[in-house]
């Protein structure tokens, strides 16, 4: 008798979770011409919890409703996102495989020789989040403001943390020293969060990662902001405005990253239309706006031709920067990318 009870208890506990979670997956009516019939796979070629991942998950959660199917987020980290991006690119072009990534990564895989055959022009971008790089320092650092920052870079070797070669913080630092005309010590970490933590702990003095990644540490006064690499000030709720870098150097370009979805070109037109429509709704959602506010970034709605321009600009800015700083040996000219 007891055996029977325990066996049935075991069965119930095995089946119950399935039922409970299945209940949440009721199909909803779809819109537009395209009626997806199976689960859409959204490949995020970065670890769970990063900027690409957060953006992709929120967009997926909102778009599911519109499209009427489930969107499965799959993290495929490694090789700066190249292998995951490649896998998604090679999937059938039917609109059921998407990538969640940053404009900069997609735009530089070719120049970094990671995906020599896939150009940023092969993707249709749907960009939902814009996040600029912020120059921040450890609060115990003698650097208090812009003048102090420039003075420090000119008089000693300042250690700058970044999320790795070619990552946001690295590109920002290279652009910065290009305009100041000095050298610095680049200290790469494995991802944005470790780089920011290293600056909080004082292992490095400066970090120029994305505003998303530093927002909470700034709010908690564990980091001090010097300037944002944009032409307008950055507002972080609960803090003073962070001055734009163009206050000090007029012609300094905006170093900012877009996060969003990338879908290979060549999928059926009606699928493209439906995705566009669902995306337009998703970027207006409260969830994305809340996330943007919380993470000190901006919710944007860039798709179609406008997205192509953004991608083209990103490719030109970042490819030439990587080439000029000898990170890559391939000339962007060869790939038909004009100098900014």
């Amino acid at each position: 008798m007891r055996k029977k009870i325990s066996v049935s208890l075991c069965l119930v506990l095995l089946v119950l979770p399935g039922l409970l979670f299945a209940a949440g997956t009721k199909e909803k009516s779809s819109v537009g011409g395209w009626k997806p019939t199976k689960t859409i796979t959204l490949v995020v070629p970065w670890g769970a919890g990063g900027s690409s991942d957060l953006t992709a998950r929120i967009l997926a959660g909102e778009m599911e409703n519109r499209l009427g199917v489930k969107i499965a987020v799959v993290n495929q980290p490694g090789a700066s996102g190249a292998t995951g991006t490649k896998a998604a690119f090679e999937a059938p072009k039917d609109g059921y495989t998407w990538v969640g990534n940053a404009d900069m990564s997609i735009a530089t895989y070719q120049i970094l020789d990671l995906l020599p055959e896939i150009s940023h022009r092969d993707w249709q971008a749907y960009l939902g989040i814009l996040t600029p790089c912020v120059i921040t320092v450890n609060p115990d650092s003698p650097i208090k403001d812009w003048d102090g920052l420039v003075h420090a870079f000119k008089t000693r070797e300042v250690a700058v943390a970044s999320a790795g070669i070619g990552a946001g913080g690295h590109v920002a630092a290279e652009t910065f020293v290009k305009y100041i005309g000095t050298k610095y010590k680049h200290v790469p970490y494995k991802g944005g969060n470790p780089a920011v933590v290293a600056t909080v702990s004082g292992e490095t003095e400066v970090v120029m990662q994305l505003s998303q990644e530093v927002a909470d540490m700034l709010r908690a006064k564990k980091l001090r902001a010097i300037a944002v690499m944009d032409n307008k000030p950055l507002m972080i709720t609960g803090l003073d405005l962070i001055p734009p870098i163009t206050n000090y150097i007029k012609e300094f370009p905006t170093v900012a990253f877009h996060f969003g979805l990338f879908i290979p070109r060549g999928i059926p037109q009606e699928a493209q239309d439906s995705i566009s429509e669902a995306f337009a709704v998703a970027v207006q959602s409260k969830a994305l706006k809340d996330m943007a506010e919380q993470k000190a970034s901006i919710a944007v709605d860039i798709k179609g031709k406008e997205a192509d321009t953004v991608m083209e600009n990103a490719a030109s800015l970042f490819s030439w920067l990587l080439f000029d700083t000898h990170v890559t040996k391939i000339s962007p000219e060869k790939l038909g990318i004009p100098r900014p």
Binding site: G47, A48, G49, G50, D53, L54, R57, I58, N193, M291, Q294, K295
Partner: peptide, 9 residues
Amino acid sequence: AVLLAALWL
């Protein structure tokens, strides 16, 4: 790390 991301979401 994943749990932290979920908290943010």
